[in-house]
Amino acid sequence: MELTVIGKYRALVIRPDDELDQHSAENIRTEADRLLKKTGLCNVVFDMRNVRFMDSSGIGVIMGRYRTVCTMGGVVAICGMNSLIDRVVQMSGLRDIVIITDRLQNALEEVLSVCLKTV
């Protein structure tokens, strides 16, 4: 997993490795929350370009970060999903509450524009 702070967009970009299940979810949760707390960033972007597999544990992680940033006025975006992940996300209803884009750059820009509106 890679974590990148992009100050310009007030965003933490989380790029999980190939398989996002209960096992890898635990690590993402701990590391992302530690960094969110430390930096005070309010937006989270899940960049799924490397993820080939995701089950409902991935949904749990995204929902959890959504709850965290919501209280800070931030938003969550997901980009670069393959069709399997897209179907799982669709089923969960996450589409109604997070921003979904193909490319990371679009996700960052949308995240920032939503963030600016609420300020």
Partner: peptide, 10 residues
Amino acid sequence: DERSGMGFTI
């Protein structure tokens, strides 16, 4: 525990 509750649905 941040479970999504989606397991059986999936």
